[in-house]
Simulated assay, not measured.
Amino acid sequence: MEQISPAQVAEWAKGQALRPVLLDVREGWEVQTASVQTEGLDLVHMPMQTIPARLDELDKSRPIACLCHHGGRSMQVASFLSQHGYQVANVSGGIHAWSMQVDPTIPVY
């Protein structure tokens, strides 16, 4: 499984043939608490437990970077998506690391 740091996400996105998706798998209250701004990616929110039922909403032709709070849930989702034929990377350290490495205005929770 490809691991990318939050600081590498923008560069990773530029290297993709199709516009990638940043898949935020956190709960709704977490997204309301802290969210990222992305350039070059389409932000999609799907809580982890909804992924199996909503799998058809994700385009297999587009690369996906999975994001959660610290990287654990997104790693599980990335593994699941990879097993179903998606091109996936995991954002290591999650939104917490994003706040530390990319955008300190993102609240830490």
Rank of each mutant, 00 (worst) to 15 (best):
T33Y: 15
R62H: 05
Q16H: 10
E11A: 15
L23G: 06
I51R: 00
V9R: 06
R26P: 08
V108T: 14
L43W: 07
V108P: 08
V9F: 09
T50Q: 11
R26F: 07
M1L: 13
V44D: 01
Q49R: 10
Q49G: 01
R26D: 06
T105N: 08
I95L: 10
L58S: 00
L41P: 04
T38V: 15
V88W: 00
D24R: 03
L41V: 04
I64L: 07
A10H: 08
A65N: 03
V77F: 03
D24E: 04
E11G: 10
D42Y: 02
A53S: 11
L41W: 01
P104N: 11
D59N: 10
R73Y: 01
I51Q: 00
T38L: 12
I95A: 05
L58F: 07
A17W: 11
H96Q: 14
H96I: 14
M48S: 04
Q8G: 06
Q76R: 13
V91C: 12
H84I: 01
Q87A: 13
S92E: 13
A17L: 13
Q87K: 14
G94Y: 08
L22H: 04
P6K: 06
G71W: 03
S92P: 00
W12G: 10
D56M: 08
H70S: 15
S61I: 04
L81R: 01
G71C: 08
I4V: 15
D56R: 10
K14R: 14
V44L: 09
K14I: 00
P47N: 03
L55M: 10
Q3P: 06
V36I: 13
L55V: 04
P6I: 06
T33P: 01
T50P: 00
M1C: 02
M100V: 14
Q3E: 14
W12Y: 14
V36Q: 08
W29K: 12
I95K: 07
C66W: 06
A13L: 09
S74E: 09
I106L: 07
H96D: 14
V102Q: 06
M100F: 14
P104E: 11
D103S: 07
G93L: 08
V21S: 01
K60F: 01
V88L: 01
Q87M: 12
W12R: 09
G94L: 11
Q16V: 08
V36T: 11
E39C: 00
V108A: 13
V21H: 02
K60G: 02
T50S: 11
P52A: 01
F80G: 05
A78G: 15
R26A: 06
E2Q: 15
P20I: 04
K60I: 00
W98C: 11
M48K: 08
G93H: 05
T105M: 01
V77M: 05
P63L: 03
L55T: 05
K14Y: 00
V88R: 00
R54G: 06
R73V: 01
Y109A: 08
C66L: 09
D103I: 04
A53H: 08
S99A: 15
V36G: 03
T38G: 02
T33R: 15
M48W: 05
M100P: 09
F80Q: 06
P47H: 02
R26T: 04
H69M: 13
Q101H: 01
G93F: 02
T50M: 10
D103Q: 10
Y109W: 11
Q3S: 12
Q37E: 14
G28I: 07
G93K: 09
